[in-house]
Nucleic acid binder design. Structure first.
Lengths: 157, 157
DNA sequence: GTCCATGCAAATGATTTGCAGTATC
DNA sequence: GATACTGCAAATCATTTGCATGGAC
């Protein structure tokens, strides 16, 4: 059922001296059950209430923050007023894979894609600036097919 | 004094039937006077008050939103609780140049860099998905030189 | 049994909005 | 002079926090 390594997550919590609670498990499962869905805290709250009806929204926020700091979930921000979350790439089967987002500026649709093209860039930056890159986030804005993505570029307001 | 094309901005406002006010000019100049500085609304407010002491914070917010929608300024979000702004790339001399950000996850320092490496990726995406990319945003997270950027990679929390 | 974790309600804080007065075109 | 813009204060709303109770180990 789970699309991610649940045991690994519990291990990590225990190793840090943190407790494996019903709420934490439920939040992680809710997010893991919706890969690529970019859930808001409120959406996670609604999903979790199914299995865990007494959970409070504050607990969802606290749990989200904890899981985020452990990199069990990833934070994404589409600048629409909500921070969103998805299962951490470290927990998903393939291990290190980077996925990024295409955001349609007309309809708001978000499409995920994978690409490791930035590794070359990261090496270049390390060489020229001494900055050691450990993660990256790429957002591409444009028009999806339904909103005129394949039209010839033209002036538009 | 201005590091950007002020006339172009005023033209654009007028063309849209909008008014060129003291406040709008002052906000744009404040942001333009601090290239690469990623100002928050509050910081812009403080800067603008020098030339325009009676301006209200609400006007700054409204102006920022307006200038952003006209692409006269660019919005950036470093997920620290503030939306930040910088002069729009369209207004700066060189025209189309993309700049992105290196964010140190230890000290928070932000370094800008330029690179057009993503153009190849954009073409690839257009070809495979039909999505027409018109803009992109790249954030690279890691450790700056002062925070151990040039150390060998090791386990850290 | 010890503390960490939770639920609730209240607090926070960036941003938005209503409205009456003001300034641009 | 019409009406878009501004300043002020109040409202909004996602997120955080204080505190007393509850649960994991």
């Amino acid at each position: 059922m789970a699309f991610f390594d649940k045991g690994k997550a519990e291990q990590l919590l225990k190793r840090k001296g943190l407790r494996v609670t019903r709420q934490r498990t439920a939040v992680l499962e809710a997010i893991g059950s919706r890969p690529r869905e970019h859930l808001t805290a409120e959406e996670i709250f609604e999903l979790v209430k199914v299995d865990c009806p007494d959970i409070g929204l504050a607990t969802v926020y606290r749990t989200i923050q904890l899981l985020g700091s452990l990199h069990l979930i990833d934070r994404i921000n589409f600048d629409d007023g909500f921070v969103r979350y998805e299962i951490g790439s470290a927990l998903e089967g393939t291990g290190k894979h980077r996925h990024h987002h295409l955001i349609c500026i007309k309809c708001g649709r978000v499409i995920s894609f994978q690409d490791d093209l930035l590794e070359e860039l990261e090496r270049k930056i390390a060489a020229t600036t001494g900055f050691r890159v450990v993660n990256h986030e790429v957002k591409l804005y444009g028009y999806c097919v339904e909103c005129g993505g394949d039209l010839i570029e033209e002036k538009r307001e």
